[in-house]
Nucleic acid binder design. Structure first.
Length: 597
DNA sequence: GGGCCGAGCCAC
DNA sequence: AAACGTGGCTCGGCCC
């Protein structure tokens, strides 16, 4: 293994020199690509360096001096394969800052996540360089690029910066070779192809971003603040007599008796009121008879909304686009689901006036589409249960049908309570739920819940079979797969571990849930690719802007919104049918000025 | 003053 | 009191 200092590279600072390297790039089977910019925001980042490595040559291009148009075609083409670490960033910067649409992507970070899914979340270049090549990387130089006083901004690079840049792209080729073998050995090629195709779609979705009506948002927050302040005042007044002395601040104002956000102070207050509580969790407070408990729950409701969804989200509006550009983490969950942050638009409250603040631009509409009961349909598919399948094939209400089967009564006689019980079981099973927690939810004794489950499993024998088998298989083989081929590994606890059985139970539940949740993620990812493909092919003024697990939101010009809605529905069904052969897939689409279910 | 962690709670 | 899968955010509290 060559030492890092040995890496030879050409530093390209003229247009002529750049043009000369193109034929070599075109002939190469693989080209690794890396960029250095001065910001993580593609809209604000100045493109400083572009590094390209082939198996033969390493190039570091000074983007402050040359125009990248000579390498545009080779970067956009289907060949050679482009190897990157966290390609989403480079795709975005290259698109916004250089007008280059990166094609044929292999992402070492995404690949590593697939290979080690369930075992590790260490996917940094430093980690994988060490793992595959035994190379120790330093990452301190990276920070020098984002320094606002960085001379690189004026095209003055230190040798250290150039060496660092060349090294980062160079090592990707060797990592790729070894990593690719791992993907093959684990049967992950199809999933990797899917994930690699999703990268640019996600990058485009982030670049487009979501528009939020700030005025409406603030008005909603203020409403909540008034309600919170009122209930806080009421609680403080109730509690003040408990304090030995009235605390007074610098200006002589009476201070709050306690901090309602501190569980310790709350427990103390309850104690002084003669109520001993084990904790201040929602469940505990709901059972507590003292009026303070009820008020506290009300306070918490408002406080959660204000702190989590208040002004902080508005601060993330991009100054250049005026929109929110959250970070979608493509392999956020071990099941294959997306995660999202800065801000997390996947946890905006469903009801309560926040979602309707997400709006379409003037002249546009939002198209919100979600899969109907996709996880239950996946359970029907994998279990091949005839009763489950028949319910979806004939488009019946599954929960009502379940209730009718379980209680042996005609469909017409299924009341709300029985449907709710059936629904709770249908959903609970996918999470590996047991009789105890089911009992709590539907308000029966544990024995009654156990009996309900018994009846349920007599009706849906194949569902039980599948759940039992997949749970056992997860423990035996230490991994499970989705219908798309994605895999998640499990680490078995030591046999003498004090919580051995508990931990095994956890793996069984994850083993049951992962194929279902993960297949849903597979389907949504195929759908994103298909939809993006159709929008591009038909050159529509329509853009993906958001996804929440089984939901996809697009923004489309008003006059084509209905057409776009139809395309989205078709492509989502097409994606579902790719993995679900026996069970039909259903999609619900809405066209609106707001984000709504 | 930054990093980390658990509690609590939002989403699907 | 609860044993229900997947995440992220905010806070208090603790550590260095």
């Amino acid at each position: 293994m060559a030492t890092l200092e040995d890496i030879k590279y050409e530093f390209i600072t003229t247009q002529e020199a750049l043009e000369k390297i193109v034929p070599g790039l075109e002939k190469a089977p693989t080209v690794s690509v890396d960029t250095e910019g001065n910001s993580l925001d593609p809209y604000q980042s100045k493109l400083l360096l572009l590094q390209l490595s082939t198996p033969e040559e390493n190039y570091v291009i000074d983007c402050t001096k040359v125009n990248l148009s000579p390498v545009k075609a080779v970067l956009e083409a289907e060949k050679p394969l482009k190897i990157l670490q966290n390609a989403k960033y480079d795709y975005s910067v290259l698109k916004v800052q250089a007008g280059i649409i990166l094609g044929a992507i292999y992402d070492t970070m995404i690949a590593e996540r697939l290979i080690t899914c369930g075992l590790s979340r260490e996917i940094s270049l430093r980690t994988i360089a060490d793992k595959y090549l035994g190379v120790k990387l330093e990452k301190v130089t990276r920070e020098s690029f984002t320094d606002p006083k960085n001379p690189a901004l004026r095209g003055k690079f230190t040798k250290e910066q150039l060496d660092y840049a060349a090294r980062d792209s160079h090592i990707l080729l060797d990592i790729f070779k070894k990593q690719f073998k791992q993907l093959q050995e684990q049967g992950l090629i199809e999933t990797a192809k899917l994930e690699f195709k999703v990268i640019s779609v996600v990058a485009e979705m982030e670049l487009k971003g979501s528009l939020i009506d700030t005025k409406k948002w603030r008005a909603h927050i203020e409403e909540l603040e008034e309600k919170r302040n009122a209930i806080n005042q009421e609680i403080q007044n109730d509690l003040r007599p408990l304090a030995a002395f009235t605390q007074v601040d610098l200006f002589g104002n009476e201070m709050d008796a306690i901090n309602l956000d501190s569980p310790l102070q709350l427990l103390d207050a309850f104690k002084k009121l003669g109520v001993e509580l084990p904790n201040t969790s929602e469940a505990t407070l709901q059972k507590c008879e003292h009026p303070l408990a009820k008020k506290l729950l009300e306070y918490r409701g408002y406080e959660k909304m204000i702190t989590s969804f208040g002004e902080t989200i508005l601060q993330k509006i991009n100054p250049i686009t005026g929109r929110l550009h959250p970070d979608f983490i493509q392999l956020g969950a071990d099941t294959g689901r997306f995660a999202c942050n800065n801000p997390n638009l996947q946890q905006i409250p469903a009801e309560s006036g926040f979602r309707s603040c997400f709006v379409a631009s003037p002249g546009y509409k939002l198209v919100t589409a979600d899969y109907s009961q996709i996880e239950l349909r996946i359970m029907a598919e994998v279990s091949e249960d005839p009763v489950f399948l028949e319910a979806f094939l004939s488009d019946q209400d599954l929960h009502t049908l379940t209730a009718s089967q379980m209680f042996r009564i005609p469909i017409e006689q299924v009341d709300k309570a029985k449907r709710f019980q059936a629904k709770s079981i249908n959903f609970g099973l996918m999470y590996g739920r047991g009789p105890a927690s089911l009992a709590v939810q539907i308000g029966v004794t544990v024995d009654e819940a156990r009996e309900l489950l018994d009846v349920y499993f007599k009706t849906y024998r194949k569902v039980k079979q599948w759940l039992d088998n997949i749970g056992r298989s997860a423990v035996k083989n230490c991994y499970v797969r989705t219908l798309g081929g994605r895999r998640r590994s499990f680490i078995l606890p030591d046999r003498d571990h004090p919580d051995y059985l508990k931990l095994i139970g956890g793996i069984e539940r994850q083993g049951k849930n992962t194929p279902i949740q993960g297949t849903s993620a597979d389907i949504t990812k195929y759908a994103l690719i298909f939809i993006y493909g159709e929008f591009s092919k038909k050159n529509l003024d329509a853009h993906l802007i958001h996804t929440v697990h089984d939901e996809i939101v697009s923004e489309a010009r008003e006059d084509i919104a209905e057409e776009v809605a139809k395309i989205v529905e078709e492509q989502m069904i097409r994606a579902g049918a790719l993995l679900l052969k026996k069970c039909p897939v259903k999609v619900e689409v809405k066209v609106s000025n707001y984000w709504e279910k």
